[in-house]
Simulated scan of single mutants.
Amino acid sequence: MPPSSALPASAAPAPTLPCLPGDGDALVVVDVQNDFLPGGPLAVADGDRVVAPLNRYIHLFQQRGLPLVFTRDWHPANHCSFHAQGGPWPPHCVAGSPGAGFAPGLHVPANATLISKGAHAGIDAYSAFQGTGLGAYLQRLGCRRIFVGGLATDYCVLATVRDARQQGLAVVVLRDAIRAVAVQPEDGRRAEDEMLRLGAHPLTWDEVAP
């Protein structure tokens, strides 16, 4: 059949799924902390439901010997994002407090890399890359792509994906392992749409499991 310069829309090839984790990949688990779980001062609806799917991805990356990065908000008690300092949020994830601890049941391997962010009183930081050295760390490891899940879709996950793309990293968003704060009802959907517009690829465990 002679080559065609354009395929009709009905014959356009289906988009391919991103390949499974391998060399050059890292998993970044964003802020799955007690204060963001139901009952916490800055609760994400169903935030606890990211733990089980994240554990599956963590196990997969462990099996393959790939880098694991866990981020956490690690705020001073007078952080600029808190209401008392004129910020938008109630106090949360204060460094060393139980609320700043990782969610019960989340598997954090001993060899995982821990990234603390938002640790300066006068600087707000949503992205895992902001002021943490994460970009340079991933570069040293030879990482070209990150898989991202955690809390919350419309803030720290989105900001992390945005910065990763700006740094030239490919990004896979684990759609079954993210949840939104949704200050406005559509914030979560809008954040996912923006991540896709930035070039991130969506993935769920059903597409990974045999």
Rank of each mutant, 00 (worst) to 15 (best):
V50H: 01
G105T: 12
E192H: 10
A159Q: 10
L203Y: 04
L138I: 03
P185Q: 09
C19V: 15
P53N: 02
L114S: 13
V157T: 07
G24E: 05
H201G: 11
P2L: 13
R49A: 14
G131C: 10
Q167T: 02
C143R: 04
G188E: 01
V181Q: 13
C80T: 10
V172P: 00
L114H: 12
L114W: 08
A136Q: 11
A119G: 13
L20S: 11
A26G: 09
L54Q: 00
G122T: 11
A110L: 14
Q33D: 09
S10I: 11
L20G: 09
H107R: 13
G99E: 02
E194V: 14
L151V: 13
R197G: 08
V161Q: 03
Q63Y: 04
L151G: 14
K117E: 07
L27Y: 05
S10Y: 04
S97G: 08
A45L: 13
P2W: 01
L196F: 13
D23W: 07
A45Y: 05
P41G: 04
D73E: 13
T16W: 08
V157G: 00
L66P: 06
D176R: 01
S97C: 10
R145H: 02
L158P: 11
Y155K: 06
G188A: 07
R189C: 14
R175W: 03
G135E: 05
Q85I: 09
V94C: 01
L203Q: 06
V108R: 06
V148C: 00
G131M: 06
F102V: 08
C80N: 09
P202F: 00
F61K: 00
L68P: 05
D176Y: 01
H59A: 15
A159D: 04
D25Y: 00
V51S: 08
W74I: 05
A125W: 12
A159E: 06
V148D: 00
R56Q: 09
P3L: 15
G22H: 13
L37V: 07
A152Y: 11
G149C: 07
R145G: 06
S10F: 05
V148Q: 00
G47S: 03
D23F: 09
G188H: 02
L174Q: 00
C19A: 15
R144K: 14
E207T: 09
V44D: 01
D206W: 06
A12K: 14
Q139F: 05
F129E: 10
G24L: 07
D23Y: 08
G118D: 08
L203P: 04
D46R: 11
V44R: 03
G101C: 07
T71C: 05
D187G: 09
F82I: 04
V29L: 03
L54V: 00
P13Q: 12
P76S: 12
I58F: 02
G168S: 13
H79Q: 03
V181E: 12
A6S: 15
C143I: 13
L66M: 10
G22W: 07
V148A: 01
A84L: 06
A191S: 08
N55D: 08
G188R: 02
P104A: 14
A26D: 08
L141N: 03
D48L: 05
E192K: 03
G87I: 10
